[in-house]
């Protein structure tokens, strides 16, 4: 029961945010962005924390979801449910195809091969001249939802993102608690022993990779709708690095860490940028100190105090 206390508190805080002084336009936009990136970070956590596969190509999943919105928008398909299904399907399929090669490797090689596929997706996106190429593509409007335009409403979009973030978080925890998750964990700790027990880790890891890809696609679809603009920079490897950093800063022990990491990076970045134009001079050292002294990540702080 106790492990649900933190997530519930965070959920309540995010749900209350529009009504306790964060209801202005820019604050809502920022919160939506933070929650969407948190969703992507949770899906990356499934790989990094759950399966022990450090991927540096996760931005590609986000980008494929975003470009699904663009391509369908160009074809005059704006029904959100259809777009979301296509985005998830396309990203999961991409993950399945590239994962079939990548999952065979591990460690540094896995990082590099996911980076390679991410870069391929990036250069493909920047060559799509019909969808703006390097300059990106501005959406005419957000996707409709079951024929109505309620995603245009800021508060409604806020709760849509929050609801999906909660759903993704619960799905990841349920997945890791299931037999499937136990096999993943066993393969992470000792692949040889998992094989000796009669499991083929490859199939489980590939499935996890595809699931994470699908969730990444959903986050990309939401991100495109939040910004109403999509550019190849969505797929740049720097963004994959950002996502990885969110997961590690928050703490790889639980998916809650990914959520906390994503929220705190997006919000602190914004807050510092408002204080000074040289915010990176403060932000960089802060991150280094956090990595040096917070071994369990931000999510591990309460446990540090409990131990005293």
């Amino acid at each position: 029961m106790r492990s649900w206390l933190g997530p519930l508190l965070l959920l309540a805080l995010l749900a209350a945010a529009p009504f306790i002084g964060f209801g202005q336009g820019w604050a809502m936009t920022l919160l939506a962005r933070a929650m969407i990136l948190a969703m992507a970070a949770v899906s990356l956590w499934l790989l990094v924390g759950g399966a022990g596969m450090v991927s540096l190509g996760h931005a590609a999943m986000l980008g494929i979801g975003a470009y699904a919105v663009v391509i369908l928008d160009d074809a005059r398909v704006t029904e959100g449910l259809v777009v979301a299904a296509v985005a998830i399907g396309a990203a999961a399929r991409f993950a399945l195809l590239t994962g079939a090669v990548a999952v065979r490797t591990s460690g540094v090689h896995f990082i590099m091969i996911t980076l390679a596929f991410g870069q391929m997706a990036f250069f493909t996106a920047s060559s799509l001249a019909a969808y703006g190429g390097d300059d990106g593509y501005t959406l005419y409007a957000r996707n409709t939802f079951a024929g109505t335009g309620w995603m245009e409403d800021r508060v409604a979009f806020h709760f849509l993102c929050l609801g999906l973030l909660a759903a993704v978080y619960i799905k990841c925890r349920v997945l890791m608690a299931s037999r499937f998750g136990r096999v993943l964990r066993a393969a992470r700790e000792n692949p040889l022993r998992a094989q000796a027990l009669g499991f083929a880790p490859y199939r489980y890891q590939l499935t996890a990779y595809a699931i994470a890809g699908g969730i990444g696609g959903l986050a990309g679809m939401l991100l495109a709708n939040a910004t109403e603009f999509v550019a190849p920079s969505f797929l740049a490897w720097q963004r994959s690095g950002d996502l990885l950093f969110m997961v590690i800063l928050g703490g790889v022990a639980s998916p809650l860490g990914a959520v906390i990491g994503a929220l705190s990076i997006v919000l602190v970045e914004e807050w510092l940028a408002e204080l000074t134009t040289h915010w990176r001079m403060i932000f960089g050292p802060l991150l280094i100190l956090a990595v040096l002294f917070l071994r369990g990540g931000l999510a591990g702080i309460p446990a540090m105090f409990r131990r005293g």
């Binding site: 090669v101 065979r104 590099m112 091969i113 980076l115 390679a116 250069f123 060559s127 001249a129 190429g133």
Partner: peptide, 27 residues
């Protein structure tokens, strides 16, 4: 016109394709 775009992106991608291939064959 498409040749220029496809060519440019393929040219940038080539290194990564080579890496993926080499890692798949000789990890």
């Amino acid at each position: 016109s498409p040749a220029r775009q496809v060519g440019a992106s393929l040219g940038s991608m080539l290194v990564y394709m080579a890496m993926a291939l080499i890692l798949a064959v000789r990890p």
